[in-house]
Amino acid sequence: MKNPEEIFELLKNEFGDTILGLDKDTPTESIILVDSMNINKIGAFLRNNNDLKFDSLMVLSGVDDTNGTKVKDEDGTDMISGGTLSVYYHLHSTNLKHKITLKVSTPRENPQVESTYNVWRTSDWHEREAYDMFGIIFLNHPDLRRILMPYDWEAGYPLRKDYKNPEFYKGMKVPY
């Protein structure tokens, strides 16, 4: 059983600069910030290391950080430009009973994160959901399609904070 500081030190020694920092401000859990293009390697280390054994990914959540600048579109609607989208990984070890949270950030205009499909098989659908809701591209994912919304949904990514719902979908009126 290790606490977040020890896990952070272990990762820092192994991966150096790709571990960006430890966020201890949150009241309930510490978050390790990780580079988005190395998450697969780091995940595999976290799972296979005998002192860590993070064999279970509890949840993978996409988040729209909304830290860009608000701009007006040409037709007057609010848009967010710049800033980042983030993905949080909540890991748990069924064997050693410790938990850790990882966070990766990626630019909003071209959001790309490495897939952890081959580390934790469960991230398959979680990543598809994050793609569906936020448009985050998971590199090397075998089957990155929409999962909850219809496959032919063209109006964008619903959980982004500047999402605009269409008036009609296949002839059905969408707003109330």
Binding site: P158, N165, M172
Partner: peptide
């Protein structure tokens, strides 16, 4: 009947089956 609790923010909810 009308979308129920999802009437306002339900971007993927049909607001009443009588539309179809």
């Amino acid at each position: 009947n009308c979308g129920g609790p999802y009437w306002e923010h339900g971007y993927h909810v049909l607001k009443g089956i009588d539309r179809v």
